[in-house]
Each structure stands twice: as C-alpha cells, then as structure tokens.
Design a protein around this nucleic acid. Structure first.
Lengths: 106, 106
DNA sequence: AATATATGTAACTTTAAAGTTACTAAACAA
DNA sequence: TTGTTTAGTAACTTTAAAGTTACATATATT
C-alpha cells in the first residue's frame, strides 16, 4: 500500500475506509479496536488510518501507546462541494421542466 | 483499462471522469467532442464513458454514428446518501455542543 | 462505389493501491 | 528488568485501473 497522500475522492473509493468512517461516526476508536472489525492485518488498517488522517477525514489523539481516532469534518468538504454542485444541477433541471409544463398548461 | 463495472465511489475517484461529469452538466456531448478536451486517446475516453454509463451517471442516445451523452441522476444517489449521512452526523454534533454551552450559561 | 467519420474492441504495458510478513519502538505491567 | 501490548515501518507481491496502438464496424458523404 502506498502511503502517499490521496485526494478525498480516492480516499472514499475504498470500501474498507468508508466502513471505518461509518464506525467512527458511532464512537472514537483505536487502531486495534478498528482492526478487530476487519478481515485484514493490523498494519493494513494502520495504513488506511494514515490515509484517512492525511486527507483530513480523522484526527488522532495519542493516549499512552494508544491512538484514538475520531472523525474530522475537513476531509468531507470537497465531497460535499461536488455533490452540492450536482444537486443544484438536478434542481435547476427540475425547475426548467416545471416551467415547460406550466407553459403548456396555459 | 478494465471495463468491469465500478461502484459509484470508484467511478468518481478518477479526475478525468469527474471532469467529464462537470462538462456534461453544461451540455450533452458526443464521445469525440469530449475527447477533444482531454489529453488522452479517444479510446481511453470511450472507456471512461462506458464506465460512467455502467454506473448510471450518464445516459446515451445514439444519433446516426454519434453517441450523445447526458447526465443521469441515478449514479449520484449512492454518493448523496453517503454525504447526507455525515452531514447529519456533523449537524447532530453541533446541536450537542450547543446544548452543552446552553447548560453552562445557566 | 469509394472515402471519410464516429465509435467500439482486443491485446498489451505500466503503475500504484492494497495487501502480506517480519521487524522495530515505545509504553505499560509484573 | 523482563515481558506484553499498541502501533509504525520496510520490503515485498499481487492485482487491476488507466493508458496505449492497431484494427474492426457502422454510418455518412461524394
């Protein structure tokens, strides 16, 4: 696995990482407690966490030898912007259709 | 390039495909007119379009030998659900914070 | 009919993401 | 101090996404 920083879209392209984000929406978790829920080695989970951290999806607080991961809003911003753009597109399209229908009804 | 169907998240992980979706939000375009805007071969664009089509991001209307591509809402649904989930998460978190602050102010 | 245009497909190469195992380092517990 | 737990890193392998070129096919155009 490459540890080079991935962009927000690449980050959520991986199902395991999306699953990790979902789990972290319930409670903050350590690397090991996350790893318990996945069918992959602990180092693999560790690298996913590094990627999530690097892209601003989570923050990490070290408590002794444990690393506590919790969600961070920053990473989601680019995705929200993308989706918002197309939400507006579909809304505009719908309005145009309504206008056409209204004109026909006259 | 594999032509196997990719999920919605994998589809938008590619910057070229996101760019294609942005362009199609302005106007419907043929494969060639799309390809003119990218620094890659026409077959490469053709395969991206196939992927976008396969995941429900675009519909295609054949007119003679031309294929006219236009946006289709279906492909965006899964992404919207994902983002909505976390939008709600942040909103809930904000409300909890407000409650705490209000209690302190008493 | 011959030619040009628009597109798809097959076969191939390159690259990097995702995983593995083995090892290291730091914090804690005995 | 010795051993256990938590986590990161290095080196490596596998796989598939992304691109290429060459060729095939169908529709227009002349």
């Amino acid at each position: 696995m490459r540890t080079q920083t991935l962009d927000a879209f690449q980050v959520i392209a991986d199902p395991s990482r999306r699953q990790m984000l979902m789990m972290l929406s319930k409670e903050s978790m350590t690397i090991n407690s996350l790893a318990d829920n996945f069918d992959m080695s602990r180092p693999a989970v560790s690298k996913h966490i590094k990627i999530l951290y690097g892209a601003g999806f989570i923050s990490i607080t070290d408590i002794g030898r444990e690393r506590h991961c919790m969600l961070k809003q920053e990473g989601f911003n680019e995705l929200q912007n993308f989706i918002n753009f197309f939400d507006k597109f579909w809304l505009t399209k719908l309005r145009k259709l309504e206008t056409i229908l209204n004109n026909k009804a006259k």
